[in-house]
Amino acid sequence: TFELKGKVGKVVKIAEDHYLVEVEGDKWIAYSDEKLSLGDRVMVVDVDGLKLKAKRIP
């Protein structure tokens, strides 16, 4: 999973306390310091076990 750092994905679902992000065809649980919206493009900035930390990108 460490190779996911720096990869770009898309928010495909918003849950109460996390997001579901699709990166290279796989879906991952993600969290972010900022509020994300459905369809936002994100970059993986860190990997915490099986969770990704994501940041919105333009």
Rank of each mutant, 00 (worst) to 15 (best):
T1M: 15
T1S: 15
T1Q: 15
F2G: 15
F2T: 15
F2V: 15
F2I: 15
F2H: 15
F2E: 15
F2Y: 07
F2S: 15
F2K: 15
E3C: 06
E3R: 02
E3I: 03
E3A: 03
E3K: 02
E3G: 02
E3M: 02
E3D: 06
L4T: 06
L4M: 11
L4V: 13
L4S: 04
L4Q: 09
L4F: 03
L4Y: 03
K5N: 15
K5I: 15
K5V: 15
K5F: 15
K5A: 14
G6F: 03
G6I: 01
G6T: 02
G6H: 02
G6S: 02
G6Q: 02
K7C: 08
K7N: 04
K7W: 03
K7V: 02
K7D: 04
K7S: 06
K7M: 05
V8E: 14
V8W: 05
V8R: 06
V8G: 05
V8F: 11
G9F: 05
G9H: 01
G9V: 05
G9P: 00
G9T: 01
G9A: 08
G9N: 00
G9E: 00
K10T: 10
K10R: 13
K10W: 13
K10S: 13
V11W: 00
V11I: 07
V11Q: 00
V11R: 00
V11N: 00
V11D: 00
V11G: 00
V12I: 10
V12A: 06
V12Q: 05
V12R: 04
V12W: 07
K13M: 11
K13T: 10
K13F: 10
I14R: 06
I14H: 07
I14Y: 07
I14K: 08
I14L: 14
I14V: 14
I14D: 08
A15Y: 14
A15R: 13
A15T: 14
A15E: 12
A15W: 14
A15G: 10
E16C: 11
E16A: 13
E16N: 12
E16F: 13
E16I: 11
E16H: 12
D17C: 11
D17Q: 10
D17I: 09
D17G: 11
D17W: 10
D17L: 09
D17F: 10
H18E: 12
H18S: 10
H18G: 13
H18K: 09
H18F: 11
Y19A: 06
Y19F: 09
Y19W: 06
Y19K: 01
Y19N: 02
Y19D: 01
L20A: 05
L20N: 05
L20R: 04
L20S: 07
L20V: 10
L20E: 08
L20Q: 09
L20K: 05
V21N: 00
V21D: 00
V21P: 00
V21C: 06
V21W: 00
V21A: 03
V21G: 00
E22Q: 07
E22S: 08
E22V: 12
E22I: 11
E22W: 07
E22T: 11
E22A: 08
E22K: 08
E22Y: 06
V23Y: 02
V23R: 01
V23G: 02
V23L: 13
V23P: 00
V23E: 01
V23A: 03
E24M: 11
E24N: 07
E24Y: 06
E24L: 11
E24H: 06
G25Q: 08
G25R: 07
G25V: 04
G25C: 10
G25A: 07
G25F: 08
G25T: 07
G25E: 07
G25W: 07
D26Y: 14
D26R: 13
D26Q: 14
D26C: 14
D26W: 13
D26I: 14
D26P: 04
K27T: 09
K27W: 10
K27Q: 12
K27E: 10
K27M: 08
K27S: 12
W28G: 01
W28A: 03
W28L: 03
W28P: 00
W28S: 02
I29F: 14
I29M: 13
I29E: 14
I29C: 08
I29K: 09
I29T: 10
A30N: 01
A30M: 13
A30G: 09
A30S: 11
A30E: 01
A30P: 00
A30R: 00
A30D: 00
Y31M: 12
Y31C: 14
Y31S: 12
Y31I: 13
Y31G: 08
Y31R: 06
S32N: 04
S32P: 02
S32D: 02
S32F: 02
S32Q: 02
S32Y: 01
S32V: 08
S32G: 05
D33P: 07
D33R: 05
D33V: 07
D33Q: 07
D33C: 07
D33W: 05
E34M: 06
E34H: 07
E34C: 07
E34R: 03
E34F: 04
E34D: 15
E34I: 04
E34A: 06
K35T: 13
K35H: 11
K35D: 12
K35F: 11
K35S: 11
K35N: 12
K35C: 13
K35P: 11
L36E: 00
L36W: 10
L36A: 01
L36S: 01
L36V: 04
L36T: 01
L36R: 00
S37M: 12
S37N: 11
S37A: 12
S37Y: 14
L38P: 10
L38W: 07
L38D: 07
L38T: 08
L38C: 11
L38S: 05
L38E: 09
L38F: 10
G39R: 06
G39Y: 11
G39F: 11
G39H: 13
G39S: 09
D40H: 05
D40C: 06
D40A: 05
D40I: 04
D40N: 06
D40Q: 03
D40T: 05
R41Y: 14
R41E: 14
R41N: 14
R41H: 15
R41I: 13
R41S: 15
R41M: 14
V42I: 15
V42A: 04
V42P: 00
V42F: 07
V42G: 00
V42R: 00
V42C: 08
M43G: 04
M43Q: 11
M43S: 05
M43R: 04
M43K: 07
M43N: 04
V44S: 01
V44M: 05
V44P: 01
V44I: 15
V44N: 01
V44L: 04
V45C: 07
V45I: 13
V45Q: 04
V45S: 04
V45M: 07
D46H: 05
D46K: 03
D46T: 03
D46L: 04
D46S: 05
D46M: 03
D46N: 03
V47G: 05
V47Y: 07
V47A: 07
V47C: 08
V47N: 05
V47P: 02
D48V: 14
D48W: 08
D48I: 14
D48Y: 09
D48H: 08
D48Q: 11
D48T: 10
G49E: 06
G49K: 05
G49H: 06
G49D: 07
G49C: 04
G49T: 03
G49S: 04
G49Q: 05
L50D: 15
L50Q: 10
L50S: 12
L50Y: 15
K51G: 04
K51V: 13
K51C: 10
K51H: 08
K51W: 07
L52K: 01
L52W: 02
L52Y: 02
L52F: 03
L52T: 02
K53T: 11
K53D: 04
K53V: 03
K53R: 08
K53M: 07
A54G: 04
A54H: 01
A54V: 15
A54K: 01
A54R: 00
A54W: 07
K55Y: 03
K55M: 10
K55Q: 14
K55L: 06
K55R: 05
K55C: 10
R56F: 07
R56L: 12
R56G: 06
R56C: 04
R56Y: 08
R56K: 13
R56E: 02
R56M: 06
I57L: 13
I57T: 05
I57Q: 07
I57H: 10
P58E: 13
P58D: 13
P58I: 08
P58Y: 11
P58R: 05
P58F: 09
